[in-house]
Design a protein around this nucleic acid. Sequence first.
DNA 1: TAGATTGTTAATCGATTAACAATC
DNA 2: TAGATTGTTAATCGATTAACAATC
Lengths: 217, 217
Amino acid sequence: MNDNRKLPKLPSIKRLPSYLHELKILRDNDQQVVSTTHLAQKLGLEPIIVRKDLELASSPGSPGVGYSIQKLIEGIENFLGWNDENPVFLIGVGNLGTALLGYKGFSEYRFNIVAAFDNSPDKIGTTIHDKPVYDIERLAELAEAMQVKIAILSVPCEFAQKAADHIVKSGLRAIWNFTNTPLALPPEMIQQRVNMAGDLAELSVKLSGKMWDNVDI
Amino acid sequence: MNDNRKLPKLPSIKRLPSYLHELKILRDNDQQVVSTTHLAQKLGLEPIIVRKDLELASSPGSPGVGYSIQKLIEGIENFLGWNDENPVFLIGVGNLGTALLGYKGFSEYRFNIVAAFDNSPDKIGTTIHDKPVYDIERLAELAEAMQVKIAILSVPCEFAQKAADHIVKSGLRAIWNFTNTPLALPPEMIQQRVNMAGDLAELSVKLSGKMWDNVDI
DNA sequence: TAGATTGTTAATCGATTAACAATC
DNA sequence: TAGATTGTTAATCGATTAACAATC
């Protein structure tokens, strides 16, 4: 009943960027070919997992030899649509928003925050980490002009749904949701949530040792 | 062969903080009791999933009625060990590190960054977002003094492994890894990776529509 | 009592892992 | 040829979903 239908092979998809990252390092070291054994060892995975994952995105490897690094990179980037630059808007320039504006890590994957939006007169018209901050009311206009389809949502939690509604009305297609409010969205909108609290929960349970009671080493 | 053994019920554990968040909102609105139907609807999940998840952490509910909100909150917090304050160190005060220092969202889960560490003389001795920045060489000493077990790692990727080694030697027990380098760590160390690039990959594939080819609505 | 909701058992689905023949 | 590695098929494991009796 939930039209945010599940993607087959989701765990594999989430691992693809790690391969990409490692492959680029290998390429920069003038390597031509890599085996799943090597990648697995670098990334702390099992070789068979790597082989299955690469199946998703890549041109075939050579038995006894391995995969062409260059072809793997192209295959994965192509599969993910990471060949082109992806312009992104950021909505909500608070603590987290400002943080994200300064973070350069997304550019490795060709995602660039091209502008930010807020409703506070103090912020509108300023520039933060070289990105202009616009009035949220101009979202639709600028999304159209700049051909932006993706919004990073980093407003305070109480305003998340309202901001999301505004994003939808403004014609964007996807929301990368950094708030911890799940959003109710029309089915054609794509929502991707960052669940840092979930990570923290996992870390906490590992630390407590709670889950290991009846597992032997 | 990978001693970062898998936790049973990991997806359930990752969902617990969302329940906690919603339950606290309900409590603040003076609600006493909640049903899985209600929680599921709020969080965009199926009721049966919620029921199974709560089984992990909670005291039982009453058929025909629902669960005590207060008991659920206590049960989940207890299960996660989120009753007490958790002091945390942040290693690496660059773009992302500064961002995280300013982010107040972790405090909802009682994780507080109590100090930051860097190796740059420009940063050592300063205060960022009210948190002191110390020389990384003082990590062991201050971890002991302040009883800190968890480090957030936000150094540039090239230095990630070296910084991790230093964290291990300093006697901490867990690393929350915000770099995209997977770390090689001794088995007793706990590693939790934040994989934002993985999220971005998922978003990209959804946007491309690639995976829907042979799925009917 | 009727309706809502839980707890539990069984069925399904998908991801991981194992095994191995084919290839370089 | 021998060793390494891929691609593919089958087995296992665990998470999600369905079904339903028991309870308020």
